[in-house]
Nucleic acid binder design. Structure first.
Lengths: 243, 243
DNA sequence: AACATGTCAAGAGCGGTGCTCTCAATTGTT
DNA sequence: AACAATTGAGAGCACCGCTCTTGACATGTT
Protein backbone atom coordinates (compact mmCIF):
# COMPACT_ATOMS: atom_id res chain seq x y z
CA UNK A 1 0.00 0.00 0.00
CA UNK A 2 1.31 3.40 -0.94
CA UNK A 3 1.90 6.08 1.65
CA UNK A 4 -0.90 8.19 0.28
CA UNK A 5 -3.28 5.26 0.31
CA UNK A 6 -2.25 4.36 3.83
CA UNK A 7 -2.79 7.90 4.94
CA UNK A 8 -6.19 7.97 3.30
CA UNK A 9 -7.03 4.68 4.96
CA UNK A 10 -5.99 6.02 8.35
CA UNK A 11 -8.00 9.14 7.78
CA UNK A 12 -11.02 7.08 6.93
CA UNK A 13 -10.56 5.06 10.07
CA UNK A 14 -11.27 7.81 12.57
CA UNK A 15 -14.99 8.15 13.29
CA UNK A 16 -14.75 11.90 12.88
CA UNK A 17 -13.52 11.59 9.33
CA UNK A 18 -16.02 8.91 8.55
CA UNK A 19 -18.87 11.07 9.75
CA UNK A 20 -17.48 14.04 7.89
CA UNK A 21 -17.23 12.10 4.62
CA UNK A 22 -20.76 10.84 5.09
CA UNK A 23 -22.08 14.35 5.66
CA UNK A 24 -20.35 15.59 2.50
CA UNK A 25 -21.82 12.67 0.58
CA UNK A 26 -25.26 13.59 1.92
CA UNK A 27 -24.77 17.18 0.87
CA UNK A 28 -23.83 16.09 -2.65
CA UNK A 29 -26.87 13.84 -2.79
CA UNK A 30 -29.21 16.60 -1.66
CA UNK A 31 -27.51 19.03 -4.01
CA UNK A 32 -28.06 16.58 -6.82
CA UNK A 33 -31.79 16.48 -6.10
CA UNK A 34 -31.97 20.21 -5.81
CA UNK A 35 -30.07 20.58 -9.05
CA UNK A 36 -32.30 18.13 -10.87
CA UNK A 37 -35.49 19.86 -9.81
CA UNK A 38 -34.54 23.52 -9.85
CA UNK A 39 -31.59 23.81 -12.23
CA UNK A 40 -27.95 24.70 -11.81
CA UNK A 41 -28.23 28.46 -11.55
CA UNK A 42 -30.85 28.11 -8.83
CA UNK A 43 -28.74 25.78 -6.72
CA UNK A 44 -28.94 27.14 -3.20
CA UNK A 45 -26.77 26.20 -0.27
CA UNK A 46 -29.45 27.37 2.11
CA UNK A 47 -31.97 24.99 0.58
CA UNK A 48 -29.48 22.14 0.86
CA UNK A 49 -28.95 23.09 4.48
CA UNK A 50 -32.70 23.02 5.10
CA UNK A 51 -33.00 19.59 3.53
CA UNK A 52 -30.08 18.47 5.63
CA UNK A 53 -31.95 19.67 8.71
CA UNK A 54 -29.24 22.11 9.63
CA UNK A 55 -28.77 25.85 9.72
CA UNK A 56 -27.34 27.43 6.58
CA UNK A 57 -23.96 28.37 7.97
CA UNK A 58 -23.28 24.82 9.08
CA UNK A 59 -22.80 23.45 5.58
CA UNK A 60 -19.81 25.75 5.17
CA UNK A 61 -18.02 23.41 7.57
CA UNK A 62 -18.12 20.78 4.85
CA UNK A 63 -18.21 22.68 1.56
CA UNK A 64 -16.12 25.80 1.09
CA UNK A 65 -18.72 27.65 -0.96
CA UNK A 66 -21.33 27.31 -3.65
CA UNK A 67 -18.75 26.87 -6.38
CA UNK A 68 -17.17 24.01 -4.49
CA UNK A 69 -20.52 22.23 -4.31
CA UNK A 70 -21.01 22.90 -8.01
CA UNK A 71 -17.66 21.28 -8.72
CA UNK A 72 -18.58 18.25 -6.63
CA UNK A 73 -21.84 17.93 -8.55
CA UNK A 74 -19.97 18.36 -11.81
CA UNK A 75 -17.57 15.47 -11.25
CA UNK A 76 -20.46 13.46 -9.83
CA UNK A 77 -22.47 13.95 -13.01
CA UNK A 78 -19.49 13.35 -15.29
CA UNK A 79 -18.79 10.14 -13.43
CA UNK A 80 -22.34 8.90 -13.73
CA UNK A 81 -22.51 9.72 -17.43
CA UNK A 82 -19.19 8.00 -17.98
CA UNK A 83 -20.35 4.94 -16.09
CA UNK A 84 -23.57 4.78 -18.08
CA UNK A 85 -21.66 5.05 -21.35
CA UNK A 86 -19.09 2.46 -20.35
CA UNK A 87 -21.77 0.03 -19.26
CA UNK A 88 -23.70 0.44 -22.49
CA UNK A 89 -20.63 0.12 -24.70
CA UNK A 90 -19.25 -2.87 -22.81
CA UNK A 91 -22.56 -4.67 -23.30
CA UNK A 92 -21.85 -4.82 -27.04
CA UNK A 93 -19.28 -7.33 -28.36
CA UNK A 94 -15.93 -5.65 -28.88
CA UNK A 95 -15.93 -6.62 -32.55
CA UNK A 96 -19.19 -4.84 -33.30
CA UNK A 97 -17.78 -1.37 -33.66
CA UNK A 98 -20.86 0.15 -35.23
CA UNK A 99 -22.96 -1.35 -32.47
CA UNK A 100 -20.66 0.08 -29.84
CA UNK A 101 -20.85 3.50 -31.47
CA UNK A 102 -24.62 3.41 -31.47
CA UNK A 103 -24.64 2.21 -27.87
CA UNK A 104 -22.50 5.17 -26.86
CA UNK A 105 -24.77 7.63 -28.60
CA UNK A 106 -27.89 6.11 -27.10
CA UNK A 107 -26.36 6.06 -23.64
CA UNK A 108 -25.55 9.76 -23.84
CA UNK A 109 -29.04 10.61 -25.05
CA UNK A 110 -30.79 8.39 -22.52
CA UNK A 111 -28.82 9.80 -19.63
CA UNK A 112 -29.37 13.35 -20.83
CA UNK A 113 -33.13 12.87 -21.14
CA UNK A 114 -33.22 11.23 -17.73
CA UNK A 115 -31.13 13.96 -16.09
CA UNK A 116 -31.80 17.14 -18.04
CA UNK A 117 -30.62 19.57 -15.37
CA UNK A 118 -27.37 17.70 -14.73
CA UNK A 119 -26.80 17.38 -18.47
CA UNK A 120 -27.32 21.12 -18.70
CA UNK A 121 -24.70 21.64 -16.03
CA UNK A 122 -22.18 19.63 -18.05
CA UNK A 123 -22.96 20.74 -21.60
CA UNK A 124 -25.22 23.76 -21.37
CA UNK A 125 -24.46 27.42 -20.94
CA UNK A 126 -21.79 27.94 -18.32
CA UNK A 127 -22.96 28.97 -14.87
CA UNK A 128 -22.30 32.73 -14.59
CA UNK A 129 -19.36 33.49 -12.37
CA UNK A 130 -18.34 29.86 -12.07
CA UNK A 131 -15.19 28.50 -13.64
CA UNK A 132 -14.69 24.76 -13.38
CA UNK A 133 -11.28 23.90 -11.91
CA UNK A 134 -9.59 22.13 -14.82
CA UNK A 135 -7.51 19.94 -12.54
CA UNK A 136 -10.55 18.25 -11.07
CA UNK A 137 -12.93 18.19 -14.03
CA UNK A 138 -10.97 17.48 -17.23
CA UNK A 139 -10.23 13.89 -16.31
CA UNK A 140 -13.84 12.82 -15.64
CA UNK A 141 -15.02 15.20 -18.33
CA UNK A 142 -13.07 13.52 -21.11
CA UNK A 143 -14.05 9.94 -20.41
CA UNK A 144 -16.80 9.75 -23.00
CA UNK A 145 -14.91 11.39 -25.86
CA UNK A 146 -11.93 9.14 -25.22
CA UNK A 147 -14.23 6.17 -25.31
CA UNK A 148 -15.65 7.35 -28.62
CA UNK A 149 -12.21 7.80 -30.12
CA UNK A 150 -11.16 4.38 -28.92
CA UNK A 151 -14.13 2.89 -30.76
CA UNK A 152 -13.04 4.60 -33.97
CA UNK A 153 -9.45 3.50 -33.46
CA UNK A 154 -10.35 -0.09 -32.73
CA UNK A 155 -12.56 -0.19 -35.81
CA UNK A 156 -9.74 1.16 -37.90
CA UNK A 157 -7.25 -1.38 -36.56
CA UNK A 158 -9.75 -4.12 -37.38
CA UNK A 159 -10.06 -2.79 -40.91
CA UNK A 160 -13.75 -2.25 -40.25
CA UNK A 161 -13.83 1.29 -41.58
CA UNK A 162 -14.89 1.49 -45.19
CA UNK A 163 -12.81 4.22 -46.81
CA UNK A 164 -15.23 6.97 -47.68
CA UNK A 165 -14.61 9.99 -49.84
CA UNK A 166 -13.75 12.22 -46.92
CA UNK A 167 -12.84 15.85 -47.32
CA UNK A 168 -9.20 16.79 -47.19
CA UNK A 169 -7.89 18.30 -44.00
CA UNK A 170 -6.02 21.58 -44.32
CA UNK A 171 -2.48 21.68 -42.91
CA UNK A 172 -3.20 23.82 -39.85
CA UNK A 173 -5.87 21.38 -38.77
CA UNK A 174 -3.61 18.43 -39.49
CA UNK A 175 -1.23 19.69 -36.83
CA UNK A 176 -3.99 19.62 -34.24
CA UNK A 177 -5.14 16.14 -35.12
CA UNK A 178 -1.62 14.79 -35.45
CA UNK A 179 -0.91 16.06 -31.94
CA UNK A 180 -3.97 14.18 -30.69
CA UNK A 181 -2.96 11.06 -32.58
CA UNK A 182 0.53 10.91 -31.09
CA UNK A 183 -0.63 11.86 -27.61
CA UNK A 184 -3.21 9.08 -27.51
CA UNK A 185 -1.24 6.63 -29.63
CA UNK A 186 -3.91 6.35 -32.31
CA UNK A 187 -3.63 4.52 -35.60
CA UNK A 188 -6.74 6.06 -37.12
CA UNK A 189 -5.92 8.59 -39.85
CA UNK A 190 -6.50 12.26 -39.25
CA UNK A 191 -9.27 12.54 -41.85
CA UNK A 192 -11.31 10.05 -39.85
CA UNK A 193 -10.42 11.89 -36.67
CA UNK A 194 -11.56 15.19 -38.16
CA UNK A 195 -14.90 13.67 -39.07
CA UNK A 196 -14.96 12.03 -35.66
CA UNK A 197 -14.79 15.46 -34.04
CA UNK A 198 -17.85 16.45 -36.01
CA UNK A 199 -19.59 13.24 -35.00
CA UNK A 200 -18.76 14.04 -31.40
CA UNK A 201 -20.18 17.55 -31.43
CA UNK A 202 -23.13 16.48 -33.58
CA UNK A 203 -24.26 13.91 -31.05
CA UNK A 204 -24.33 16.58 -28.40
CA UNK A 205 -25.98 19.03 -30.73
CA UNK A 206 -28.83 16.63 -31.37
CA UNK A 207 -29.14 15.69 -27.70
CA UNK A 208 -29.00 19.30 -26.56
CA UNK A 209 -31.73 20.31 -28.97
CA UNK A 210 -33.94 17.62 -27.54
CA UNK A 211 -33.11 18.18 -23.88
CA UNK A 212 -33.22 21.97 -24.05
CA UNK A 213 -36.49 21.98 -25.95
CA UNK A 214 -35.23 23.55 -29.16
CA UNK A 215 -37.39 21.29 -31.22
CA UNK A 216 -40.90 22.57 -30.85
CA UNK A 217 -43.34 20.37 -29.01
CA UNK A 218 -44.96 19.18 -32.22
CA UNK A 219 -42.35 19.15 -34.97
CA UNK A 220 -41.08 15.64 -34.25
CA UNK A 221 -43.23 12.90 -32.85
CA UNK A 222 -40.76 10.10 -33.62
CA UNK A 223 -37.76 11.40 -31.71
CA UNK A 224 -36.23 8.01 -31.02
CA UNK A 225 -36.27 7.22 -34.71
CA UNK A 226 -34.88 10.63 -35.55
CA UNK A 227 -31.91 10.09 -33.27
CA UNK A 228 -31.36 6.59 -34.61
CA UNK A 229 -31.35 8.00 -38.12
CA UNK A 230 -28.82 10.61 -37.08
CA UNK A 231 -26.63 7.93 -35.56
CA UNK A 232 -26.72 6.03 -38.82
CA UNK A 233 -25.67 9.06 -40.82
CA UNK A 234 -22.95 9.96 -38.33
CA UNK A 235 -21.59 6.43 -38.35
CA UNK A 236 -21.26 6.73 -42.09
CA UNK A 237 -19.17 9.86 -41.69
CA UNK A 238 -16.32 7.89 -40.19
CA UNK A 239 -16.84 4.88 -42.41
CA UNK A 240 -18.56 2.71 -39.83
CA UNK A 241 -20.92 0.42 -41.64
CA UNK A 242 -24.02 -0.08 -39.51
CA UNK A 243 -24.48 -3.61 -38.29
CA UNK B 1 -53.75 51.33 -42.86
CA UNK B 2 -55.21 48.64 -40.66
CA UNK B 3 -57.05 49.45 -37.47
CA UNK B 4 -54.32 47.97 -35.35
CA UNK B 5 -51.65 49.95 -37.16
CA UNK B 6 -53.69 53.13 -36.87
CA UNK B 7 -54.15 52.51 -33.20
CA UNK B 8 -50.44 51.92 -32.74
CA UNK B 9 -49.72 55.10 -34.65
CA UNK B 10 -52.08 57.08 -32.48
CA UNK B 11 -50.58 55.58 -29.37
CA UNK B 12 -47.12 56.54 -30.58
CA UNK B 13 -48.27 60.09 -31.08
CA UNK B 14 -48.82 60.95 -27.45
CA UNK B 15 -45.61 62.10 -25.76
CA UNK B 16 -46.36 59.84 -22.84
CA UNK B 17 -46.33 56.74 -24.96
CA UNK B 18 -43.25 57.88 -26.78
CA UNK B 19 -41.39 58.39 -23.53
CA UNK B 20 -42.63 55.09 -22.24
CA UNK B 21 -41.48 53.21 -25.32
CA UNK B 22 -38.11 54.89 -25.10
CA UNK B 23 -37.73 53.88 -21.45
CA UNK B 24 -38.58 50.28 -22.27
CA UNK B 25 -36.05 50.35 -25.09
CA UNK B 26 -33.45 51.69 -22.66
CA UNK B 27 -34.26 48.92 -20.20
CA UNK B 28 -33.82 46.28 -22.91
CA UNK B 29 -30.52 47.85 -23.92
CA UNK B 30 -29.23 47.89 -20.33
CA UNK B 31 -30.53 44.38 -19.79
CA UNK B 32 -28.65 43.28 -22.89
CA UNK B 33 -25.41 44.66 -21.48
CA UNK B 34 -26.04 43.10 -18.12
CA UNK B 35 -26.86 39.80 -19.80
CA UNK B 36 -23.72 39.87 -21.90
CA UNK B 37 -21.44 40.51 -18.95
CA UNK B 38 -23.06 38.51 -16.17
CA UNK B 39 -25.10 35.82 -17.88
CA UNK B 40 -28.78 35.06 -18.12
CA UNK B 41 -29.31 33.48 -14.74
CA UNK B 42 -27.67 36.45 -13.03
CA UNK B 43 -29.84 38.99 -14.79
CA UNK B 44 -31.03 41.36 -12.11
CA UNK B 45 -33.79 43.93 -12.38
CA UNK B 46 -32.25 45.86 -9.52
CA UNK B 47 -28.98 46.22 -11.39
CA UNK B 48 -30.82 47.37 -14.48
CA UNK B 49 -32.64 49.92 -12.34
CA UNK B 50 -29.34 51.15 -10.94
CA UNK B 51 -27.90 51.56 -14.42
CA UNK B 52 -31.06 53.36 -15.44
CA UNK B 53 -30.52 55.72 -12.52
CA UNK B 54 -33.80 54.81 -10.90
CA UNK B 55 -34.95 52.99 -7.81
CA UNK B 56 -35.59 49.26 -8.25
CA UNK B 57 -39.34 49.34 -7.98
CA UNK B 58 -39.67 51.91 -10.74
CA UNK B 59 -38.78 49.50 -13.53
CA UNK B 60 -41.86 47.48 -12.71
CA UNK B 61 -43.83 50.31 -14.25
CA UNK B 62 -42.39 49.32 -17.60
CA UNK B 63 -41.62 45.62 -17.34
CA UNK B 64 -44.00 43.29 -15.54
CA UNK B 65 -41.29 41.14 -14.00
CA UNK B 66 -37.94 39.49 -14.59
CA UNK B 67 -39.40 36.89 -16.92
CA UNK B 68 -40.93 39.62 -19.06
CA UNK B 69 -37.54 41.26 -19.44
CA UNK B 70 -36.05 37.87 -20.27
CA UNK B 71 -38.64 37.44 -22.99
CA UNK B 72 -37.84 40.87 -24.41
CA UNK B 73 -34.15 40.00 -24.47
CA UNK B 74 -34.96 36.64 -26.05
CA UNK B 75 -36.81 38.10 -29.03
CA UNK B 76 -34.19 40.84 -29.24
CA UNK B 77 -31.41 38.27 -29.53
CA UNK B 78 -33.35 36.06 -31.94
CA UNK B 79 -33.96 39.07 -34.11
CA UNK B 80 -30.34 40.09 -34.15
CA UNK B 81 -29.17 36.57 -34.97
CA UNK B 82 -31.76 36.32 -37.71
CA UNK B 83 -30.70 39.66 -39.16
CA UNK B 84 -27.04 38.64 -39.12
CA UNK B 85 -27.85 35.37 -40.87
CA UNK B 86 -30.08 37.00 -43.46
CA UNK B 87 -27.47 39.63 -44.22
CA UNK B 88 -24.71 37.05 -44.61
CA UNK B 89 -26.81 34.75 -46.80
CA UNK B 90 -28.13 37.56 -48.97
CA UNK B 91 -24.56 38.66 -49.67
CA UNK B 92 -24.02 35.42 -51.60
CA UNK B 93 -25.54 35.04 -55.09
CA UNK B 94 -28.80 33.13 -54.93
CA UNK B 95 -27.47 30.51 -57.32
CA UNK B 96 -24.52 29.61 -55.09
CA UNK B 97 -26.38 27.31 -52.74
CA UNK B 98 -23.29 25.84 -51.12
CA UNK B 99 -21.92 29.31 -50.59
CA UNK B 100 -25.17 30.42 -48.98
CA UNK B 101 -25.13 27.39 -46.70
CA UNK B 102 -21.60 28.14 -45.59
CA UNK B 103 -22.48 31.80 -45.08
CA UNK B 104 -25.35 30.79 -42.83
CA UNK B 105 -23.14 28.53 -40.75
CA UNK B 106 -20.42 31.15 -40.43
CA UNK B 107 -22.94 33.83 -39.49
CA UNK B 108 -24.32 31.69 -36.69
CA UNK B 109 -20.86 30.91 -35.38
CA UNK B 110 -19.61 34.48 -35.64
CA UNK B 111 -22.62 35.87 -33.85
CA UNK B 112 -22.39 33.22 -31.16
CA UNK B 113 -18.71 33.89 -30.51
CA UNK B 114 -19.41 37.62 -30.45
CA UNK B 115 -22.37 37.27 -28.09
CA UNK B 116 -21.74 34.17 -25.99
CA UNK B 117 -24.15 35.04 -23.18
CA UNK B 118 -27.02 35.87 -25.53
CA UNK B 119 -26.30 32.74 -27.54
CA UNK B 120 -26.45 30.81 -24.30
CA UNK B 121 -29.83 32.34 -23.56
CA UNK B 122 -31.16 31.12 -26.90
CA UNK B 123 -29.53 27.71 -27.22
CA UNK B 124 -28.07 26.84 -23.84
CA UNK B 125 -29.59 25.28 -20.78
CA UNK B 126 -32.99 26.78 -20.06
CA UNK B 127 -33.17 29.43 -17.37
CA UNK B 128 -34.59 27.73 -14.26
CA UNK B 129 -38.15 28.74 -13.55
CA UNK B 130 -38.53 30.53 -16.86
CA UNK B 131 -40.72 29.27 -19.66
CA UNK B 132 -40.55 31.20 -22.89
CA UNK B 133 -44.03 32.23 -24.10
CA UNK B 134 -44.34 30.30 -27.35
CA UNK B 135 -46.58 32.89 -28.93
CA UNK B 136 -43.92 35.55 -28.81
CA UNK B 137 -40.75 33.51 -29.35
CA UNK B 138 -41.44 30.78 -31.90
CA UNK B 139 -41.73 33.18 -34.81
CA UNK B 140 -38.39 34.96 -34.32
CA UNK B 141 -36.86 31.71 -33.05
CA UNK B 142 -37.49 29.80 -36.26
CA UNK B 143 -36.14 32.34 -38.71
CA UNK B 144 -32.73 30.74 -39.09
CA UNK B 145 -33.90 27.16 -39.49
CA UNK B 146 -36.45 28.24 -42.08
CA UNK B 147 -33.72 30.06 -43.93
CA UNK B 148 -31.57 26.93 -43.87
CA UNK B 149 -34.39 24.79 -45.19
CA UNK B 150 -35.10 27.30 -47.92
CA UNK B 151 -31.48 27.01 -49.05
CA UNK B 152 -31.82 23.25 -49.27
CA UNK B 153 -35.12 23.55 -51.12
CA UNK B 154 -33.81 26.10 -53.59
CA UNK B 155 -30.77 23.95 -54.29
CA UNK B 156 -33.00 20.97 -54.90
CA UNK B 157 -35.26 22.89 -57.26
CA UNK B 158 -32.17 24.01 -59.17
CA UNK B 159 -31.03 20.40 -59.43
CA UNK B 160 -27.89 21.38 -57.54
CA UNK B 161 -28.07 18.54 -55.04
CA UNK B 162 -26.00 15.55 -56.08
CA UNK B 163 -27.94 12.45 -55.09
CA UNK B 164 -25.92 10.82 -52.33
CA UNK B 165 -26.41 7.37 -50.90
CA UNK B 166 -28.52 8.60 -48.02
CA UNK B 167 -29.91 6.32 -45.39
CA UNK B 168 -33.52 5.27 -45.69
CA UNK B 169 -36.02 7.02 -43.45
CA UNK B 170 -38.29 4.79 -41.41
CA UNK B 171 -42.05 5.28 -41.84
CA UNK B 172 -42.74 6.95 -38.49
CA UNK B 173 -40.13 9.57 -39.29
CA UNK B 174 -41.45 9.99 -42.80
CA UNK B 175 -44.73 11.18 -41.36
CA UNK B 176 -42.97 13.94 -39.45
CA UNK B 177 -40.97 15.11 -42.42
CA UNK B 178 -43.89 14.85 -44.82
CA UNK B 179 -45.88 17.06 -42.49
CA UNK B 180 -43.08 19.62 -42.58
CA UNK B 181 -42.85 19.37 -46.37
CA UNK B 182 -46.53 20.03 -46.95
CA UNK B 183 -46.72 22.75 -44.32
CA UNK B 184 -43.84 24.68 -45.83
CA UNK B 185 -44.54 23.72 -49.42
CA UNK B 186 -41.16 22.09 -49.94
CA UNK B 187 -40.03 20.14 -52.98
CA UNK B 188 -36.94 18.68 -51.33
CA UNK B 189 -37.34 14.94 -50.59
CA UNK B 190 -37.66 13.78 -47.03
CA UNK B 191 -34.35 11.96 -47.03
CA UNK B 192 -32.60 15.26 -47.64
CA UNK B 193 -34.79 16.89 -45.04
CA UNK B 194 -33.87 14.22 -42.50
CA UNK B 195 -30.18 14.82 -43.12
CA UNK B 196 -30.86 18.54 -43.05
CA UNK B 197 -32.19 18.20 -39.52
CA UNK B 198 -28.92 16.60 -38.54
CA UNK B 199 -27.01 19.38 -40.29
CA UNK B 200 -29.06 21.88 -38.37
CA UNK B 201 -28.38 20.40 -34.94
CA UNK B 202 -24.76 19.66 -35.84
CA UNK B 203 -24.03 23.28 -36.60
CA UNK B 204 -25.30 24.24 -33.18
CA UNK B 205 -23.48 21.36 -31.56
CA UNK B 206 -20.18 22.55 -32.99
CA UNK B 207 -20.88 26.18 -32.14
CA UNK B 208 -22.07 25.35 -28.63
CA UNK B 209 -18.94 23.32 -27.92
CA UNK B 210 -16.84 26.28 -28.90
CA UNK B 211 -18.88 28.95 -27.16
CA UNK B 212 -19.42 26.97 -23.98
CA UNK B 213 -15.79 25.96 -23.74
CA UNK B 214 -16.25 22.22 -24.15
CA UNK B 215 -13.15 21.97 -26.26
CA UNK B 216 -10.25 22.30 -23.89
CA UNK B 217 -8.15 25.43 -24.23
CA UNK B 218 -5.40 23.57 -26.09
CA UNK B 219 -6.97 20.77 -28.10
CA UNK B 220 -7.71 22.85 -31.17
CA UNK B 221 -5.63 25.81 -32.24
CA UNK B 222 -7.14 26.05 -35.73
CA UNK B 223 -10.78 26.48 -34.77
CA UNK B 224 -11.79 28.44 -37.84
CA UNK B 225 -10.45 25.71 -40.07
CA UNK B 226 -12.13 23.05 -37.94
CA UNK B 227 -15.50 24.69 -38.38
CA UNK B 228 -14.94 25.16 -42.10
CA UNK B 229 -14.11 21.49 -42.39
CA UNK B 230 -17.27 20.61 -40.52
CA UNK B 231 -19.30 22.82 -42.85
CA UNK B 232 -17.81 20.98 -45.82
CA UNK B 233 -18.74 17.60 -44.41
CA UNK B 234 -22.23 18.78 -43.44
CA UNK B 235 -22.82 20.24 -46.89
CA UNK B 236 -22.00 16.84 -48.31
CA UNK B 237 -24.67 15.24 -46.13
CA UNK B 238 -27.44 16.96 -48.06
CA UNK B 239 -25.67 16.64 -51.40
CA UNK B 240 -24.50 20.23 -51.62
CA UNK B 241 -21.30 20.27 -53.58
CA UNK B 242 -18.99 22.88 -52.13
CA UNK B 243 -18.25 25.73 -54.47
C1' DA C 1 -57.47 79.07 -14.71
C1' DA C 2 -58.96 75.19 -11.85
C1' DC C 3 -59.73 70.57 -11.52
C1' DA C 4 -59.69 65.58 -12.06
C1' DT C 5 -57.17 61.95 -14.13
C1' DG C 6 -53.35 59.30 -15.10
C1' DT C 7 -48.61 58.31 -14.50
C1' DC C 8 -44.48 58.23 -12.16
C1' DA C 9 -40.40 57.66 -8.72
C1' DA C 10 -39.55 56.67 -4.20
C1' DG C 11 -39.51 54.19 0.03
C1' DA C 12 -40.63 50.57 3.20
C1' DG C 13 -41.08 45.91 3.63
C1' DC C 14 -41.42 40.65 2.73
C1' DG C 15 -38.80 36.52 2.09
C1' DG C 16 -35.08 34.71 -0.30
C1' DT C 17 -29.81 34.26 -1.47
C1' DG C 18 -24.25 33.68 -0.39
C1' DC C 19 -21.17 34.27 3.02
C1' DT C 20 -18.62 35.61 7.56
C1' DC C 21 -18.15 35.90 12.24
C1' DT C 22 -18.63 34.69 17.14
C1' DC C 23 -20.09 31.67 20.73
C1' DA C 24 -21.57 27.66 22.95
C1' DA C 25 -22.09 22.75 22.87
C1' DT C 26 -20.92 18.36 21.50
C1' DT C 27 -17.72 15.01 20.33
C1' DG C 28 -13.50 12.12 20.17
C1' DT C 29 -9.13 11.63 22.16
C1' DT C 30 -5.89 11.24 25.86
C1' DA D 1 -12.15 13.07 33.99
C1' DA D 2 -9.83 16.78 31.37
C1' DC D 3 -8.56 18.51 27.08
C1' DA D 4 -8.86 19.91 22.40
C1' DA D 5 -10.83 19.53 18.03
C1' DT D 6 -14.97 19.90 15.69
C1' DT D 7 -19.48 21.21 15.09
C1' DG D 8 -24.10 23.74 14.99
C1' DA D 9 -26.50 27.85 15.98
C1' DG D 10 -27.31 32.57 15.57
C1' DA D 11 -26.62 37.25 14.21
C1' DG D 12 -25.40 40.08 10.67
C1' DC D 13 -24.01 42.12 5.95
C1' DA D 14 -25.17 42.95 1.24
C1' DC D 15 -27.59 41.38 -2.48
C1' DC D 16 -31.85 39.57 -5.01
C1' DG D 17 -37.31 39.63 -6.89
C1' DC D 18 -41.38 41.57 -5.93
C1' DT D 19 -45.46 44.22 -3.66
C1' DC D 20 -47.66 47.99 -1.68
C1' DT D 21 -48.33 52.72 -0.32
C1' DT D 22 -47.30 57.55 -0.62
C1' DG D 23 -46.47 61.86 -2.57
C1' DA D 24 -45.09 64.55 -6.71
C1' DC D 25 -45.82 65.56 -11.37
C1' DA D 26 -47.75 66.11 -15.98
C1' DT D 27 -51.72 65.65 -18.79
C1' DG D 28 -56.24 66.60 -20.77
C1' DT D 29 -60.73 68.41 -19.67
C1' DT D 30 -64.08 71.55 -17.86
Amino acid sequence: MSDAAAEAETARRTPRERARAQTIADIVLLGRDHLATHGAAALSLRAVARDLGVVSSAVYRYVANRDELLTLLLVDAYGELGDAVDKAVDAVPSGDHAGRFRALGRAVRDWALREPARYGLLFGSPVPGYQAPAGRTTMPGTRVVFRLISIFDAAHRDGALVPAASAAVVPSLSADFDAIRTELGLAVPREILANGALVWTSIFGAVSFEVFGQYGPDTFSARDELFEHHLTVLAGLVGLRSS
